[in-house]
Write a protein that binds this DNA or RNA. Sequence first.
DNA 1: CCCAATTCTTTACGCGCGTAAATTTTTACT
DNA 2: AGTAAAAATTTACGCGCGTAAAGAATTGGG
Lengths: 343, 343
Amino acid sequence: MDGDKIRNMEEFASVSGLSRPTLSKYFHDPESVRTSTRKRIEAALEQYDYRPNIYAMNQNRRLTKNIGIVVPFLADPFFAEIARNIENLVTESGYRPILLNSQGSPENEIDNLDSLRSIKPAGVLFAPLGRESDRSAIESFCRDVPTVLFDSNIDGMGEAFVGSDNYSFVSQTVEYLSRTGEPPSFFEMRNPANPNANKRRHAYVKMMERLGLEPHVIRIEGSGWGFEEIGRQGGFKVLEEKLLPTDTVLCSNDRLAIGFLSACFERGVSVGRVDGCDLRVASHDDHPFSRFTCPSLTTAAHDYTEVSDRSVETLLRLIESGGRFERREEELFAAHLIMRNSA
Amino acid sequence: MDGDKIRNMEEFASVSGLSRPTLSKYFHDPESVRTSTRKRIEAALEQYDYRPNIYAMNQNRRLTKNIGIVVPFLADPFFAEIARNIENLVTESGYRPILLNSQGSPENEIDNLDSLRSIKPAGVLFAPLGRESDRSAIESFCRDVPTVLFDSNIDGMGEAFVGSDNYSFVSQTVEYLSRTGEPPSFFEMRNPANPNANKRRHAYVKMMERLGLEPHVIRIEGSGWGFEEIGRQGGFKVLEEKLLPTDTVLCSNDRLAIGFLSACFERGVSVGRVDGCDLRVASHDDHPFSRFTCPSLTTAAHDYTEVSDRSVETLLRLIESGGRFERREEELFAAHLIMRNSA
DNA sequence: CCCAATTCTTTACGCGCGTAAATTTTTACT
DNA sequence: AGTAAAAATTTACGCGCGTAAAGAATTGGG
């Protein structure tokens, strides 16, 4: 560093011996200039540590290098983990990730989209709240901004959807549970916000019928995003009122299961797949904490890596295609069963 | 909405019957124009839904309405929770929060600060990684940008620090544990990245000595941010090698405790404060999941609300003071003990 | 009703960079 | 060495808004 403070690209152009338009090209895409030129620029960059003013860069550019990432509830480690992966991929691709958290509220979700709109992002990766989302607001957003949905699908919204195949989750857990012991009841919230929950229930019923078993769905009350507490209260209720026809429970998702397990523990109900246990509990998602529950949770895992990779890959392809696909793409990844000690 | 699309402030000025400079003032601070004018603007805003271009707004302004929030590891629900609180407060204060995640890596931390610097934020709320942070880079950042540290302190950095009083945490847990049963050993990582961990160990030793008890610190190997797994492996080791002089363990933080509890469960070691249990386990932080562990975790809780409130309040005051305080402020909040079933 | 203080309008310039077009220089290849 | 293609330079304009200064309009208080 020469201590000389470079004020703008013009000055940096003169000290680096190049022209401003060339530098502009370089900052837009380093690969777009000759290797020798790139080296010169990067050498000068070392010396003078100049950085272009992003505001000036973006104001007069059609599409920026920003990519918005909107998740419904960041305090859920599942989304934190996905967001983490996606952020890294976006950065590696030379874009700037902008992470926005809807915090379970439809108003925040719209605010986030509005705020993204005014940032003119190259594209947006968007995991909607689901049932509570404002469909028309999202529709209008997707018309203006190239958007790929992930995690939860809303029919027709965005140019693509990347997520997990709920049927794959449930078929594996149901198959495994009914093969190795009594068939499972399905434990879920009565009014799940997330569309995946509904698909999982349907898959459960269908799968049970296919196996010639009687489906049994337990739907507990509760709203909001405090799934663990809801699962816990539901667990108490289920245990007290003896709502289980068999010794096996399949929770709609791991967070409910975490609460359910804590209820079992507190009531002295032993959970596990070994002989002598009162109950078997399994679930879906492979939540980051599910290996640390007591007992550790048998669950069907998202392919976090595939979902993140493909979401980003799809968005980049969408951006290159000018923001529109011929027809909406939909890609679902299979789950894989993770056998731990709870079932 | 009239369908008419307003392209810039000039156009919006003409349709709203006001001058552009007045509108500019309004968008900078709605209170700075006469009430009647404000009403007129807001009415027009309803009709035409125009939003100023943020890039153009900020490029030529000294300080923006952006507030950066940097957390060391967002996949840790503790930070997710704090970040959530802070984001809300920042928004309520009329600023735009920009949440950045260092993901446990010092390189990311510096990248985040660099990226914030180029955004010219009004101020930054910064929770550093700790031991691994690049001191000099942070120092230089704090010289340029009004910064308030939170959660973990680095001496002399930033204009203020807001966090929890580690001594208060540990003194309460140690006092409680030794009053109600055998005195605790202290369970921690050998090389904790976070400075709070060191303070907690010191506090433990001091507190034990004050009570006339023999301190006993167990330091387990492990690096990175996978605390649960480290606690779990450490737990196995402790149980196998019988490293505990008493039946009581105090973990440095809840995430270690979550792992430790899972190890106990797996080895059939019963944990709890009731008679007949093999072990008592307590911890610090009141991690969002600590009420769902098996057994639920007795812990000393951060005052999340106070820490978030005060951090934001302090930063806003710092911004109003022109970015500098007479002398560095430091504010620590006391913990409160939360008695659950593990001890 | 007058006057001073406040608020708004008019005018004008600049911010830092994107970007287009025409020109010159460099590169790669025969 | 000659040539076409590729890359860089020069020139010039515009983006949308901040902001300063000077004047006009509005306000409120006596």
